[in-house]
Design a protein around this nucleic acid. Structure first.
Lengths: 242, 242
DNA sequence: GAGTGGTCTAGACCACAGA
DNA sequence: CTGTGGTCTAGACCACTCA
C-alpha cells in the first residue's frame, strides 16, 4: 500500500485503500461466498500495513454486510441465502405475526430486446437484450405479489434457460459472480391492473402497492430492474428509519 | 469506568459502557442539540479510559447519527432540523426531480383520552391521555398527504396549545428534551377514505399509500404514533435497502 | 500556532472456537 | 493448547479550523 503523503488534494486513507483492494477481490469473486479469508495478521503482512489498519477495513466491509466475522473462528465472505437473510431485500410481512418463508412460482422466463424503460433503468445501449422473468410469490401459502424482473442478458448468459430458485440473488452470486450490494425502491399505491388481477386472485382496481426496484452490484452498476405489484390487505411493507 | 475482568457471564466492553454513559447524558439533555462536547482527551481523562476507547464510543454514537464530528472543530450533538435532515424521516419524493421542502398546515390539535389503538401503539395505560394533531402536508405547493399524530400528553405538556412548526421532531427535542432515534413504518395501499378525500382534493377511492409510523426515543420508548395517508400519483416513497 | 478530530502503528491482554 | 477476532492502551503524525 502506498502512503499518500501530504498531497494538496486527493488524500485517501490507508484503510480505505485496503477496503478497496479487498472489495475488488470480492467483486472479482477471488473469494467465494462462505469461504474464509486469511487472518488479519496475514493480510496485514501481505499488504504491508498494520493489523489495526486491516481491521478497520474489515470492520467497514462487515458494516456493509459483505463479510461476517466470528470471534475465534475467522472472517468469512457473507452468504445471503440463509433463512434470515432472505428478508434483507424482502420487506413484506404478515400483519399479525412472524413471517414464514416466501415461495415463488415462475410464470415465464425469456430473452428479448430491452424496452425503453428497461434500457433506462439498467443503463443499457440501444439494441441491448435482457432476460425477462415473471413470477408470483406467496407468503404462508397465499399469493402476495406478482413481479417482472429484467436483467442485462450479457451479464447473465443462459439465465433464461435455468431452473430459477426462490432467492435469485444467491443465484446471481454463485453462478454469475454478481453480488447485489444495495437496492433502491420507489413505492406507489395504484389500482390493480386487469392483467395481473387473475394471477393474484383479486378483482382489478383493488388498491395495491407497486414497488419499483433497481438493484446495484458492488461496483454500483445497475444489474436488475424489478417491478412488483403487491397485495397489502393482510400484509404490509416494513421500513425502518434511522 | 469499571473493568469487568473475566466474569463468567455478562461481559460488557469498556467502550460500550462509555457509549451508554454518553447516551444517558444525551437522553437527559445534559448537552443540547447543536452544542459542542468536550474533546476526546478531556472525556477520556474524566472517565478514566484511553482516548481510543472514547473515540470508539463517539464513532458509534456518530454512526447512530446522534453526534456529528467535524475535523478541526469538535464533536457536536446532532441537530435534525437542517434542510437536508428534514428528509431523514420524510421519504416522499416527486417522481421527476429533486424535492422542495415540504410545508404543513395544521387542521387541529387537541388533548383527549387515548383510543385503544393509541394505547396499543404507544404502550399507554388505561385512562391515559394524548395530544392528537391532524395536519395536511404539501410538496412543491401541492397537497400530498394528510396525517393524524398522537403523542402521550404526559411527555408533551402544553403541546396542544403551541404553535406547531413544520418539523415536529426538532420541537420535541428542544422543548421537551425528547430525541427521536428511529421510526418503524408499515406501508399499505388502501382506497382513499371519504373523510380525507376533501382535504387532499382527490376523489374517494383513489389508491393511496397508508404509512403507519411508530417513532421511538433514545431509550426505545414509543413516543409518537403517526398515521399518514399519501397521494402517490406524481410522488413516490423512496426506500434504500442494504 | 494551538487545538480538534482522523489515521496509523505496535503491543498487550481477553474471549471464543476447535483440535 | 493454539489461533482467531475483540478490546484497550499509548503515542506519533496528519488534516482541518480558527483565532
Amino acid at each position: 500500500m502506498e502512503r499518500t503523503g501530504s498531497n494538496a488534494v486527493g488524500f485517501r486513507p490507508l484503510y480505505r485503500q485496503v477496503y478497496d483492494t479487498l472489495l475488488r477481490r470480492l467483486a472479482d469473486a477471488v473469494w467465494q461466498p462462505g469461504q474464509i479469508l486469511p487472518s488479519e495478521g496475514v493480510l496485514a503482512a501481505e499488504l504491508g500495513v498494520s493489523q489495526g489498519t486491516v481491521r478497520k477495513a474489515l470492520d467497514a466491509l462487515t458494516a456493509d454486510s459483505l463479510l461476517v466475522r466470528r470471534q475465534g473462528r475467522g472472517t468469512f465472505v457473507a452468504e445471503h441465502d440463509d433463512k434470515q437473510s432472505v428478508f434483507r431485500f424482502f420487506k413484506l410481512r404478515p400483519d399479525g405475526a412472524v413471517a414464514g418463508t416466501p415461495t415463488s412460482r415462475v410464470v415465464s422466463a425469456t430473452e428479448a430486446a430491452a424496452t425503453l424503460d428497461e434500457r433506462d433503468r439498467l443503463a443499457l445501449l440501444r439494441n441491448a437484450r435482457v432476460v425477462r422473468m415473471e413470477r408470483v410469490r406467496a407468503l404462508d401459502g397465499r399469493p402476495c405479489l406478482v413481479e417482472t424482473i429484467a436483467v442485462p442478458a450479457t451479464l447473465f448468459p443462459g439465465l433464461a434457460a435455468m431452473e430459477l430458485p426462490n432467492t435469485l440473488y444467491s443465484l446471481y452470486a454463485t453462478r454469475f459472480g454478481i453480488t447485489i450490494a444495495t437496492a433502491h425502491e420507489r413505492l406507489k399505491a395504484i389500482a390493480l391492473p386487469a392483467d395481473k388481477a387473475e394471477l393474484l386472485g383479486r378483482p382489478a382496481g383493488t388498491p395495491v402497492l407497486e414497488v419499483d426496484r433497481v438493484a446495484v452490484d458492488l461496483e454500483d452498476r445497475p444489474v436488475e430492474w424489478r417491478l412488483s405489484t403487491c397485495l397489502t390487505e393482510d400484509i404490509h411493507y416494513a421500513s425502518v428509519l434511522r
